[in-house]
Structure formats: structure tokens, C-alpha cells
């Protein structure tokens, strides 16, 4: 039996302030196999994004265990988590999160900077990633000079430049019109089929969810299917 790429075991996430305690996730069990393309759906505030942030080691669970490739990572140090994110996980955010002060090429290079790659190696890899998303002509532009769809393609290039085995996309088409959204989905599907990249995508759009192999439904912080 193969080891799942991502395993969540009885995961709980509670946000606490001085007065309020909000349970974002409760008792979530989930396995995602290597090379799967999974979508997560559910109403706003149901914990979809929180679930994805936990899978991507961007946040820590309040309870439960998260394993990547069969090894529990819940208690890993900051440096170890940073290295895991850098080598194995790529992120695409709904609001792109490109750095406005840096050019498209410099934005795409970011993950490689923390891999201590040489300048020419970084440049080559970033150019290849931009080529892959069809934005080579815009490499010297700044994010503010691009359309929403183009910015999201830059974000995808940044996410795949380090060839991660897992790509996590949080509503990647949420801010785009349907045509742009389809283009982004095509790129993600291509990554999944051609490079066997494990893909987890949070979406509100059932049309996009249908294009994935499996849909996980969430409601009130719990998995409902």
C-alpha cells in the first residue's frame, strides 16, 4: 500500500482571541495520494482555506497530526518547515500575492533564492517557468503593469519554478473572469497530468471542481464527504 502524499489525522484548528474562540476545523481526516488532483469545496467560512494552509505548513494545527510523505511534520522546527515548503510545496493564492517592488522575473525567482541557487541558474529556471505559463514577453514588467489573469500566471510560474511535488492553489480562479479562469485551470491540469504534480485546489466554482479527480466537501469546519 502506497504512502499518501498528504495525510491529516484528526486535525483541529481553533483561533483564539482574548474573548472569542473560533473552531475553524474539527476532527478532519484526509489522505491525498501522490499525483492526485483534488478540489476542496464548501460555503464561505467552512474552513477550506484553513485546511489548505495547514496542508501547506503555512499554519500549525491546534490538535492532530499532519504527515507529508509518511512523516509527521507537526512538531518540525521553523527552519525545517521553511525547507519543506521551499523544496516540496508550491502555492497559488487567490489574490496573487506578488511583490510589487520586484519585476515579474524577480518574483518568479523567489523560491530559488532560498534554495541558494546561483544567479544564472535562477534566471534560467524562472524564464522556463514563465515560458510554461506563456508570459516570457512580460518578464521585465512589474506586477502592477499586468492584468489579473497575467498576475495569476506569474504566481503559478513562481509556484512551479522549484518543481514542487505538491501544488496548493487557494481559489486560483476566484478573481478572474471565466475565460481567464479556464486558462489557469488548463495550466494546472497540464501540470498534474504531465508532471504528476499533486494538486489541491480550493474553489467555489463547481465547474472548475468538476475538472479535478476528487472533490472534498467541507461544512462548518468538518469534512462532509
Amino acid at each position: 500500500m502506497s504512502v499518501p502524499m498528504i495525510r491529516l489525522d484528526n486535525v483541529e484548528k481553533v483561533y483564539r482571541t482574548d474573548r472569542i474562540e473560533t473552531v475553524a476545523l474539527s476532527g478532519v481526516n484526509l489522505d491525498i495520494e501522490e499525483g492526485e488532483f483534488v478540489s476542496i469545496m464548501g460555503p464561505s467560512g467552512c474552513g477550506k482555506s484553513t485546511l489548505m494552509h495547514l496542508m501547506g505548513l503555512l499554519d500549525a494545527p491546534s490538535k492532530g497530526t499532519i504527515s507529508l510523505g509518511g512523516a509527521a511534520v507537526t512538531d518540525a522546527s521553523d527552519k525545517a518547515l521553511a525547507r519543506l515548503r521551499n523544496e516540496s510545496i508550491g502555492f497559488v493564492f487567490q489574490s496573487f500575492h506578488l511583490i510589487p517592488d520586484l519585476s515579474v522575473l524577480d518574483n518568479v525567482e523567489i523560491p530559488l533564492l532560498y534554495r541558494k541557487a546561483g544567479a544564472s541558474e535562477r534566471r534560467k529556471a524562472a524564464e522556463a517557468a514563465l515560458e510554461r505559463v506563456g508570459l516570457s514577453a512580460r518578464k521585465h514588467h512589474f506586477p502592477s503593469q499586468l492584468s489579473g489573469g497575467q498576475q495569476q500566471r506569474v504566481a503559478i510560474a513562481r509556484a512551479i519554478v522549484g518543481k514542487p511535488r505538491v501544488l496548493l492553489a487557494d481559489e486560483p480562479t476566484g478573481n478572474l473572469d471565466s475565460q481567464m479562469g479556464d486558462e489557469i485551470m488548463a495550466i494546472l491540469q497540464d501540470l498534474n497530468t504531465r508532471e504528476k504534480t499533486t494538486l489541491v485546489m480550493v474553489t467555489h466554482d463547481p465547474r472548475q471542481a468538476e475538472k479535478t479527480a476528487r472533490t472534498i466537501r467541507m461544512f462548518d469546519g468538518r469534512r462532509v464527504n
Binding site: M5, S67, L68, G69, G70, A71, V73, R83, L84, N86, E87, S88, Y114, R115, K116, G162, K163, P164, R165, V166
Partner: peptide, 10 residues
């Protein structure tokens, strides 16, 4: 690293 990376950091 729990997952063998395609391009390791080092």
C-alpha cells in the same frame, strides 16, 4: 525532508 524533493535545496 519528508518528501523527496525533485530539486533538493542543496
Amino acid at each position: 525532508n519528508a518528501i523527496a524533493p525533485r530539486i533538493p535545496a542543496q
